[in-house]
Write a protein that binds this DNA or RNA. Structure first.
Length: 862
RNA sequence: GCGGACGUGGCGAAAUUGGUAGACGCACGGGACUUAAAAUCCCUCGCCCUCUGGGUGUGCGGGUUCGAGUCCCGCCGUCCGCACCA
């Protein structure tokens, strides 16, 4: 056993054993308590990156730990395999997207296997295979039958680079989330999922998710964007194209007497109608449409308007208010028109000041009733003033009163408006799930009969020109109408890949051939107990998956409303960057620095330097090629462009899987970023070897017999590490294991020490499974440590029998006392006064008051 | 602008209900072993001082308390999300 630990040998050996024995295959029939541990499945880009390793290591530790604590664990892995990169590769490398994707999957599967994850590979799935997406088509048809899928012509977000439509969630600062191209608005016939039907449920459901980060819940809440208020109509003084009334929505109906104008979006039907005969308005509307939606532009953009000359009639006092077209009113929200109350809304105020409109105050805090509004609108609480029958009411009461009057008089209703839009799922791409519909000139849009599923993608396609290859395929879209039998056309749009990832966790739990899943089997596993992934999916994926699950529950296919009971969002892996420094400077032999003119020898490239391009002289980085001094940049997310990527394969080659896994769990709390350092992985590797040597001493009993102190340390560690793993506080579990290891190493040989070493192997088994198996077998155990139970805790050993008491004088530490646990207060008091450091500090002064906290401290107050 | 999170050594970080700040790891420094190196082991390691002791210290300024990293009030800074949402 004194041989050196050879990770590459041990890793391969135990990985083969686990596979041969199908150790991590989840049983559907087990009567153990079930635990579904899931990490977000990867897109098969070609290589695993270190962020995946961190993500899957966390899930793996929890999964292995749950197995050891008697759970039947489902811990599956699959591939989010449809999407644009495969088509881009097809265009660039002339390789079929399917071939590219499947070979990437093979590579990445091999990489994952090298890390020894306890995954149930028998349930592996890839969303690009017909036996997955065919079932997705069936579910889509079920949702269609239930009225949750519809098709409509609408203005959509068009990405001119990827040449496809994007959902609102996929447009960030007016740019495509993948391509970064500025998004255009286009009118297209599109498929939509009625996520808005579930807006209220998705919002209130957040309250049931007590094991989700507040941050994610808040982000979803904001995204869903519920606003409660009054929708009502103003009468117009002149009809426009037979439109006699103007519908507006307001969350502040209480301020209705403060309205001094009304405003329309440039695309509002009234504005469009007026623009036909008013070239100046048409020009203004065009200007509004062109203005960008980027953050910086909105920030600085001036409020602008165009007076239509029309008036709206105030529903209570009959006064006439001017009607403007204004650049700050959005057609997509509410009714595309607003009642403007400058005193209590900042945008309305800015606008009113510019166009010299009145600013009557109608809400005031006590004493402010006659205080005029200057540059800042008042949106705080208070009582209504200058508001007729509302005067004196509080804001909330006034809202209720106005809504009641509007409803009884028939010109408005209390309404809720949502920011959430329906989910547009059509994509004009090849590499996605074909939408199972047929367009017939006679019958219209006809769903594909389920017995004709799956609609499989054609293999013979070309990528030589941009656009959707399915549109160009000579025969694929030609099909007979299922209803009338006449020649018809297949839908050539495919589904957004976020649909694929909205139900894969259900398919993992149950994968019959003839249907998407079996209801009873799903009920045994769902919801996912612990879901782990990056925070970048806080809205997109996690909202869509919640919606899809609720929709399936709504149509009676499954029994849970929420797919993920526990969610954990882990931080990124970062690394220091190194950049070229200009003008170039050189380190001379004597340590001095020489500068050279900037016009000679300027090297090319981005300026980021990879570790291979840099040599370190002390802590000064030198670029090898130019010999110039470089500079250490910020610690940033690993990326090719910053040249700070670490490849998992390389480091597994060098240190083995366990050292890498251990490093992923050490130091940084899992929700925070983890800075990768070479010395850090070295340290992990050192610890692997330290443990290996210690495991070799498992049978050294010595003469001592029991070692009570070590027994306590062991049991406290077993207990603490279990709690830390349950809480996903891996960094704390790691620290406790280090502490125990230090204690065991220092302890003299004894039966306690031998016991502790054996227990230590099981404590590290979830984190370093290969080392643990190797040691376990060397210790003479016959079974696998992967199947071994978590060590039992003796509660009697969790409490110390001796405690260290702090002795303070006026709150400052002066001495400590070591006493038996539970020592009486008066005795502690005496001992504290007698302590030498305390006596010297007191110098004869008698304390006025003595505070004794048993087993903690004594504080002498003078 | 709105909402949220976070500020602790050279670095990553610990710290139950307010109760010995800096566990654990990394780096640095010193030592042992060695012909030498690697590996390993031991020691030191917040800052300052008149150093068997004392002062000071958790972004800054106040407050509550016998006692504050932790609670309260007011600032400053960093990061994240949303963004003309009526």
């Amino acid at each position: 056993m004194q041989r050196r630990f050879n990770p590459l040998e041990a890793d391969a050996k135990w990985q083969r054993v686990w596979e041969d024995r199908q150790s991590f295959r989840a049983s559907d029939t087990s009567d153990k308590p079930r635990s579904y541990v899931l990490e977000m499945f990867p897109y098969p880009s070609g290589r695993i990156h270190i962020g995946h390793v961190r993500n899957y290591t966390m899930g793996d530790v929890l999964a292995r730990f749950r197995r050891m604590t008697g759970h039947e664990v489902l811990h599956p892995m699959g591939w989010d395999a449809f999407g644009m990169p495969a088509e881009n590769a097809a265009m660039e490398k002339k390789v079929h997207p399917g071939e590219w994707t499947r070979s990437n999957i093979a590579n990445m599967r091999a990489q994952l296997k090298r890390l020894g994850f306890a995954l149930d590979w028998s349930r592996e799935l890839a969303t690009c295979e017909p036996d997955y997406y065919g079932h997705e088509q069936a579910l889509f048809l079920d949702l269609y039958a239930a009225g949750l899928v519809y098709r409509k012509e609408s203005a959509v977000n068009w990405d001119p680079v990827d040449m496809t439509v994007l959902a609102n969630e996929q447009v960030i600062d007016g740019k495509g989330w993948r391509s970064g191209a500025t998004i255009e608005k286009r009118k297209l016939s599109q498929w939509f999922l009625k996520i808005t039907d579930f807006a209220d449920d998705l919002l209130s459901g957040l309250d049931t998710l007590d094991q989700w980060p507040d941050k994610v819940k808040l982000m979803q809440e904001n995204w869903i964007g519920k606003s409660v208020g009054l929708q009502f109509s103003f009468a117009l003084d002149h009809a426009v194209n037979d439109i006699e009334r103007l519908e507006v929505f307001s969350t502040r109906p209480d301020t209705i007497f403060g309205a001094s104008f009304a405003a329309l979006a440039a695309d509002h039907p009234i504005a469009l109608a007026l623009a036909k005969t008013d070239p100046l308005l048409a020009a203004f509307a065009d200007e509004c449409r062109q203005s960008g939606t980027a953050a910086a532009e909105i920030e600085t953009q001036e409020k602008k308007g165009y007076d239509t000359g029309l008036k709206v009639i105030h529903p209570f006092n009959g006064s006439e208010l001017p009607l403007f077209v204004a650049n700050f009113v959005l057609m997509e929200y509410g009714t595309g028109a607003v009642m403007a109350v400058p005193a209590h809304d900042q945008r309305d105020l800015d606008f009113a000041r510019k166009y010299m409109l009145p600013v009557p105050r109608v809400v005031a805090a006590e004493g402010d009733e006659t205080k005029p509004i200057h540059d800042e609108a008042y949106s705080g609480p208070g009582a209504l003033v200058n508001s007729d029958f509302l005067n004196g009411m509080a804001v909330e009461a006034a809202k209720v009163a106005v809504i009641a009057r509007a409803e009884s008089e028939g010109w408005g209703t209390g309404t809720t408006v949502w920011r959430l839009r329906d989910w547009g799922v059509s994509r004009q791409r090849y590499w996605g799930t074909p939408i199972p519909f047929i367009h017939c000139d006679a019958c219209g849009v006809v769903p594909v009969p389920k017995d004709q599923l799956p609609i499989v993608l054609p293999e013979d396609i070309t990528f030589d020109i941009p656009g959707n290859p399915l549109d160009r395929h000579p025969t694929w879209s030609q099909v007979d109408c299922p209803q009338c039998g006449k020649a018809a056309r297949r839908e050539t749009d495919t589904l957004d890949t976020f649909v694929d990832s909205s139900w894969y966790f259900i398919r993992f739990a149950s994968q019959p051939k003839d249907k998407p899943f079996d209801r009873e089997e799903v009920a045994r596993w769902l919801p996912v107990g612990q879901y782990i992934g990056g925070v970048e999916h806080a809205i997109l994926h996690l909202l869509y998956a919640r919606f899809w699950t609720r929709a399936l529950q709504h149509i009676g296919l499954i029994d849970v409303a929420e797919p993920f009971a526990g969610l954990f969002t882990q931080g990124m892996v970062t690394k220091e960057t190194v950049r070229r420094k200009t003008p170039l400077q050189y380190l001379e032999m004597d340590g001095s620095v020489t500068s050279y003119p900037t016009n000679i020898l300027q090297p090319e490239g981005t300026g980021w330097l990879s570790p291979e391009e840099v040599e370190w002289i002390g802590d000064i980085p030198i670029e090898k090629v130019t010999r110039a001094i470089a500079q250490v940049g910020r610690v940033e997310k690993m990326s090719k462009s910053k040249k700070n990527v670490v490849d998992p394969d390389d480091i597994v080659d060098q240190y083995g899987a366990d050292a890498v896994r251990w490093f992923m769990l050490s130091d940084s709390p899992p929700e925070r970023d983890l800075p990768w350092t070479d010395s850090g992985i070295e340290g992990s590797w050192r610890f692997v070897n330290r443990l290996w040597r210690l495991f070799g001493e498992a049978s050294e009993i010595g003469v001592g017999g029991a070692d009570k102190t070590l027994d306590r340390k062991l049991h406290q560690t077993i207990d603490g590490v279990a709690k830390d793993i349950e809480a996903l506080s891996f960094n704390k579990a790691v620290a406790k294991i280090y502490e125990l290891t230090n204690a065991v190493e220092k302890a003299a040989p004894s039966t306690s020490r031998a016991t502790a070493i054996r227990a230590l192997a099981r404590l590290v088994a979830p984190m370093m499974p290969h080392l643990a198996e190797e040691a376990w077998s060397d210790m003479g155990e016959t079974g696998l440590i992967a199947d071994a139970p978590w060590p039992a805790v003796d509660p009697a050993l969790l409490v110390d029998d001796e405690v260290t008491i702090a002795v303070q004088v006026m709150g400052k530490l002066r001495d400590t006392l070591t006493v038996p646990k539970g020592t009486a207060k008066d005795l502690l008091e005496k001992m504290a006064l007698a302590a030498p450091n305390v006596a010297r500090t007191l110098d004869g002064v008698v304390p006025k008051k003595i505070i004794v906290v048993p087993d903690r401290l004594v504080n002498l107050v003078l």
